[in-house]
């Protein structure tokens, strides 16, 4: 959806580069297992797709002659360090196994949960949020939200399915969107363009 917006409108107005770069980092740290484990063709294809789209978006926003001029750097002020440092620290302390790949994987889980924050802050500052941006954020929130249903199903049907780090992070991630979803639903019902209160 986001690539569609950027390519079709030749603009990344209202999109946080910080959030996009955090997602690229999340996928790098999480999908290192592409090199040493195979789950299914679907799983591999999706991992490669996420990496490719994340890097493509960052490339457009940073280097495309037209698109980069529509990036509002002054408004996108969230500091990386405030998200990366606590997640890194937490991953070092709270993990299933203290190995490099496992700690990086855990870090990616924590970081993904909060990676939307720069985007949410930027949207609060944006007067006219375009529909594609609003829909993109809604879909991103719904994506992890729907996992919760899948986790409940798997917990009930699979014997050794215990993933508390993933569950807590996923629920926290979804909760961060609660406020956004509330206003998204209100505006959708009223058939109005999304506006977030300051």
């Amino acid at each position: 959806v986001l690539l569609l917006k950027i390519r079709a409108t030749r603009s990344c107005r209202g999109i946080s580069l910080k959030t996009q770069e955090l997602y690229a980092l999340v996928f790098i740290c999480r999908y290192l297992d592409l090199f040493y484990s195979y789950i299914s063709l679907y799983n591999t294809v999706m991992k490669v797709t996420y990496l490719a789209t994340a890097f493509s978006i960052v490339r457009y926003m940073r280097f495309d002659k037209v698109v980069r001029q529509t990036y509002d750097k002054e408004q996108d002020t969230f500091r990386y360090i405030f998200l990366i440092a606590p997640c890194a620290l937490l991953a070092l302390v709270l993990n299933h196994r203290f190995s490099p790949t496992e700690v990086l994987w855990t870090f990616s889980i924590y970081l993904e949960a909060v990676a939307i924050l720069p985007q949410l802050v930027l949207m609060q500052r944006t007067q006219n949020i375009d529909n594609l941006t609003a829909n993109y954020v809604a879909l991103l929130g719904a994506y992890r939200g729907f996992y919760i249903l899948n986790w409940i199903y798997r917990f009930a049907t699979e014997k050794h399915y215990r993933q508390w780090i993933v569950w807590i992070s996923g629920v926290a991630q979804t909760a961060l969107y609660a406020d956004f979803f509330y206003y998204y639903a209100l505006c959708w019902k009223a058939n109005q363009r999304l506006q977030l209160p300051a």
Partner: peptide
């Protein structure tokens, strides 16, 4: 599949 085994979700 244990908790620290293969992570089969995306």
């Amino acid at each position: 599949q244990g908790p620290a085994g293969s992570h089969d979700e995306l």
